[in-house]
Each structure stands twice: as C-alpha cells, then as structure tokens.
Design a protein around this nucleic acid. Sequence first.
DNA 1: AGTTTTTGTGAAATCAATTTCACTTTGTGA
DNA 2: TCACAAAGTGAAATTGATTTCACAAAAACT
Lengths: 328, 328
Amino acid sequence: MNISEFAKIAGVSKSAVSRYFNNGYLAEDKRQLIEKAVEKTGYSPSISAQNIRTKVTKLVGVILPKLSSESCARVTEGISQVLNEEGYELLLVNTANDCRKEVEYLDLFRQNRVDGVILLATVFTQLHQSVLNKMHIPVVIVGQSYKGFNCVCHDDCGAAYALTKLMLDKGAQAPAYIGVTLDDKAAGEERRNGFTKALAEAGITLSEKHKATAEFKIQSGYEQAKYILSRKPRPDCLFCATDSIAAGALLYCREAGIDVPNDLMVCGVGDSQIGQITSVPLTTAHFHYKTSGIEAARMLLSAISRHDSVPRIMKLDFEIVERESTSR
Amino acid sequence: MNISEFAKIAGVSKSAVSRYFNNGYLAEDKRQLIEKAVEKTGYSPSISAQNIRTKVTKLVGVILPKLSSESCARVTEGISQVLNEEGYELLLVNTANDCRKEVEYLDLFRQNRVDGVILLATVFTQLHQSVLNKMHIPVVIVGQSYKGFNCVCHDDCGAAYALTKLMLDKGAQAPAYIGVTLDDKAAGEERRNGFTKALAEAGITLSEKHKATAEFKIQSGYEQAKYILSRKPRPDCLFCATDSIAAGALLYCREAGIDVPNDLMVCGVGDSQIGQITSVPLTTAHFHYKTSGIEAARMLLSAISRHDSVPRIMKLDFEIVERESTSR
DNA sequence: AGTTTTTGTGAAATCAATTTCACTTTGTGA
DNA sequence: TCACAAAGTGAAATTGATTTCACAAAAACT
C-alpha cells in the first residue's frame, strides 16, 4: 500500500495525504475522509521513503561495550526512556569490548542510517578521535570525558577519593588497591587517581605489593584479593575499582577467615545489586547511571534539533553508600 | 553524495555503480574505476533508498520487558552476536514491563521498519495473540512457548521439578514456595507446575501458609521470606522462582539466624551472578540464556530467508547447579 | 565470411514518499 | 459589485537507489 493507492481509496490527492501526516494544512472534510480511510486500511507512510526526502530517520545509534553489565543496562534504560518518548528508536550495537568494532560501527552510522549516536565508551584511542571528528551527525559520549565532544560522565575520581578518605579517616593505615586496566580512563585511571590523591594527602605511600589489576568479574576479584591479602604485611583496607571485584574479594575473605571490617575494610564503586547481598554488605559509591542515560539522550536531542550546538560536558555527582564493610 | 554524482566522478554510469555494489555483473576496468572512486570519496549507497526498492531493511526489532535484567541482557547478547555477523542491526525497544507498549511496538514494527521481530515475552494476552497473527514479517518469541509461533524457551517446569525433587530427596518434608505472578507463564506458571508436580509425586500437600508471590527483586524476596518463615510450623525447604528472590530470602535467614542449609534448604532458578556470592552459595538451575538468543536469531534468519517456514518450538535443556544452600 | 550467442552497457521506469509552484476558491473590505 | 488577500489544492519535480529492457560489441559457431 503506497500513498497513491491510499489516496485513491480515500478519494483525495497524494498531496492531501502527505499534508495530513505532516504539516496538516488541510480542509476539515478531507481530513475526515483520510482519517476514515486510515482506520479502514491501517495505512501509514513508509519511513524509508520519508527518510529519502527529509533526511530524518528517527533512529539513534547506541554503541555498548557489553550488554550484560548492570551499569550499561541502566544507562541504556535511561536513554531509551527519553528517546522513545520523543518518537525515536534505538539502533543498538554491542561491541563486546572490541575496540575495532566500536570504530567500525561509528563508521557504519556515519552514513545516513541514524540521526545521532550515543557511545558508551571505555577505552578511547587515536582512531576513535579521528573517526569521531569526521562524523557529521551529533555524538554524545557517556561515561568518559573528552574535550571537544559532548559528554555525560560520572565523578570517578571524586568517588574514589571520598571512599578512600572514608577508610583512612576510620583509622586505616595500610591500604591496598585492586583496579582495572588503565586503558579504561574512567574506571581505570580516574578511580586510581582519586585513590592516590587521598593517600598523598594522608602522607601514605602505596607498596607495589598491594596493587593489582583485575577484570570486571567476581572471579577475577577473588583471585587478585587472594594474591594481595596473602602477602605480608597484610593491608588493613582494600579499595576495589568495581563492586564485582569487591564481591570477589569478600568471597575470598570469608573463605580465608579474614574479618571484615575489623581486620580489613573493603569498598567498591558503582553500587550494583551485588553489593547488597555480599557476606558483609558493601560500602560503595552510587553513580546515577540511569540519569546519565537520560541526560545523554536529552543532550543528543538538542544537538539534533539545533545543529550549531557547542560541545558540552556534564559531570554527574555521586553518593557514598556506607554499609558494614567499612564500619568501625 | 548520491549515485549519479558518484557515477560522474568515477566516470561510469549509475547502473554500473549499482551493479558494483550488488550482483557485480561488471567488466574489470569499470570495477577498478569505481573501487578507486570509493576510496577517494567514501561513498556508500543509501540504505533507505535501497529499502524502498528491495523491501529489505537489514534491521531486526527486539522487544524487551526490561533491559537491566541479567537474563534479558544475556539473551540479547546472543541475538546481537548472530545478527551482527549476518549484517543485521538490532532495533531495540524497552517496554519496562508495560504490556500495552509491547503491543504498540509490535504494531510499529508491522509496517516496513524491520525484516523480523524477536519478542522476549513475559505475559501473553489475547491482544498479543491477535496482533501477532496480523504480523506479515517473521516473529520469534523467546522465553515462552505458544502454539503456532516460532519459540525458543527454557524447560522451566523441568528445572523447578528437578530442584524440588533434589530437596525432597535430601529429606525435606515441609516445603515452602515463593513464586512470581502467574501472568508470567514461564517463570510464574511453569515453575510452579514443576514444583507442584514434585510435591504430588512425593505425596506432600503444600499449606497455604507456605505460599507467597514476590516481585523480581531482592527486597521483595526478603519480605516474602520474612512473612513465610515467621509462621509456625516453620518449613524446612524453600523454593524460590528466581535467584534474586532467593538472595533476598537468604538475606533474611542470615538476619534471623536461620541456619541454611541445616534448618532450611533454599534454592533459586536462573543461575544469575548473585547466587555465587550469597551468604550461603545458592543451589539453582542454569538456563542457557545466551544460547537461546543465538538460536532465536538463527530461527529468525531462516524464517526471513525462506518465507514459507512452519512454526517451530525449541526447548533448551537446563543444568542443576548444586551449591551449599541445599547440601546436607 | 556470415550468423548466432554471449557479454556488457546505459537509458528509463520504478519504488514511496515530500514539497514547490501555480492555480482555484473563498472571504473580507471598500 | 469589485479588488485583493487568504486558504486550499493537485500536478509535477525531487529524493537515491534498483532493475528491466533494448541494444551494441565481441566471441564462438557454421
């Protein structure tokens, strides 16, 4: 069913039909004729054909590093809430942490497939930079902050600083650190920076023995905790860059008979569900993931509508969630 | 940049360009001319324009009840893996458990927006049925089994039966049950059926006192467990329809000083991450969620390619994961 | 050498819409 | 009653591709 055929059925011209669905510059009697015909036939205009003329797809590309991660899912939920309300659909691609795919998909979106792109970034290479600069549709980056681009990010450094300071204020003197790869600017570098800053202020230096890098997994947290906590002298507090790592660490503590929080304070970052039910409830930092998705979507929408917009960076605040794992 | 302009730059006709990107019925010299021009200009054909002619969008609609759920995320990961490989993109919509939205989106997809639809279903109303029957593009339903439609589902009944039998075989005599709404055929009805079947075989009848319905949340599991376990006589085993409910129940047990598994055996269903780190590691049933996504995507692809396909239902097997919460 | 077949080509039609433009009709004020 | 503005209309051009069709050139047979 195309517009001509439909117009014939409704007893009006093609133009009238088009006007009905668009600007609506149309006499009342024709409007009713068309309305009736729509009800009868269920006709609705082809989006592809509209796209050819208007260059609007009502589609937004969303690039995710990993779907089955609580934080990504929450961000995406925020994005989809706002965009669906505005009549946009999400074209979602999953890069499975494959950096080349990220660029590949950006390139795919560069053609006229979508009206804008939201990138949940982790790593950020030279290649990203150059592909992003060549984009001629608006892009918003979530979770990382890069000059010259639209970004919505969290205060990773501040959260790590606050958590570390919390433990130091409670009397911790020998801290340990399990982080993630520094390629991840936010969760790797920024959180480490916050941790380091708090130590520096307290005049404490971190021993190399008490530093480890884990993956974003419970199992990996368990292993790295085992490695660090079995070395002498044993630390009295442990900062984990993510809740899943902290959950793994707590698992090891229970197994090894280490008393949390009395012998060892532990904290994570992200306030994922898992922290509520660890053997000892976990102190962590709550990031407003869903809000970041909502804000990113809004930012993109406004960049799509008025095309001139200057790049802006929005940093969302966090909240410390204090639970037993650091109570003393 | 359109095909005519590009053809002029390359020094060939529009038709030649089209053939280059499609069937390739083209002389070698022209092929090279075009190849060079593509490298120079970065031209690629407009997907919308292609869609108008060929009716192929290379898009698949995916309807999710909730993004931030581990099982949904895993299924989607499987789907996206297979479809991306075949050059398809996912149009993802999140209904936030709103049944009307589910139908609304099905209707949206009914027009020529996508080549096929995958529906992660929970509830299934009369309205669903009638909208689905009016669909003229292939649909695959994941997680539920409905006659007359393509389905990929899990053996919810079998898993619940096996878990219940496991506890009964270990000597449990007074079972309790925390389920989810029966509107959810798979997680609500089927799992309850499996549980009931095992009881019936053992000649045990369930007291009304020992039955409750929770939401898919830790907090809700906690509350319902509190309600059930505080009534006399206390049950000696507890079947929870999901891991998150079980996690909440275990939380209450720790708080109330109930010894799991000696005083009370507990199990969940779904093998989510959370079960690994509960105060007592959780016995559960592992469903192959990612595999179900993969199979659903394959089923859809084959339905798209040869349009005649008869509806088929695929039921995936499960595995019992036995941990401490039922060890005796 | 003459005919048939194969191979390759571009013009033109087609797909399903929007939008401009030139026009009719209607309404208002003098 | 006439002039002029406003409102409404449909034909036709346009958007960016694919695909059919007719036709030319080259190759392979008589």
